[in-house]
Write a protein that binds this DNA or RNA. Structure first.
Lengths: 100, 100
DNA sequence: TTTACATATCGAAATATTTCGATATATTTG
DNA sequence: CAAATATATCGAAATATTTCGATATGTAAA
């Protein structure tokens, strides 16, 4: 991991709501209702559920998720009108390795 | 580690200079001149050397180091007129564990 | 005990982040 | 195709961070 990506990830992690989202996605079945489509929660949770759980505005959460995607903390999958997000464990691990 | 401390640490890590300092302190003997006192670099590097290496103002570095101390990324030791800083490996490890 | 050195704190200007409501876009469904 | 649903983007106001120079404080040396 390059320093620039590390700093961008740290910026994402320095906001309580974004951190909450990352933590909630550790257990996507326990923390969110099942996706209305056939997509299992383990392969991504739809933006609406994440939005509803935070209590912040839809536009704010969309921006948050985009920033977490750009620095690669999250992975995205678009299916029909839904967008699903899940943790990018590989990048999270690389972020930790950088520090130690 | 509590969420609040995690967020404060992330804020520290979201600045390139503070990240540099944390990385430089991985090898305090390779990255800084030997302390002028009898304190070995492995037990802490004095603020002046850290300041000189960054190129930023003394007041800025003092503020940076204080914030890194407050969130416990660093440990401090004061001896005579010098202040020495080193990494707090235990907290850094706990920060990583929180993420994974 | 004055001076020099090491570090911390203050006040301020520039820049960045947070968060919103309004609006745009894209997809599905009637 | 029109309406409904899901998500993204825009513009802006409030707040926070960055970084400085000036100054204060604490310790050591002359």
């Amino acid at each position: 991991m390059k320093a620039k990506q590390f700093v961008e990830i740290s910026k994402c992690l320095s906001n309580q709501t974004r951190l909450d989202i990352l933590e909630w996605l550790k257990d996507p079945e326990g923390n969110f209702p099942p996706n209305t489509s056939s997509m299992p929660n383990t392969e991504g949770v739809c933006v609406t559920f994440i939005h509803e759980k935070t209590g912040l505005s839809q536009s704010t959460i969309s921006t948050y998720l985009t920033s977490m995607l750009r620095c690669e903390l999250l992975e995205m999958k678009r299916v029909g009108k839904w967008t699903y997000f899940k943790r990018n464990e590989k990048v999270i691990k690389a972020y930790c390795d950088y520090l130690l």
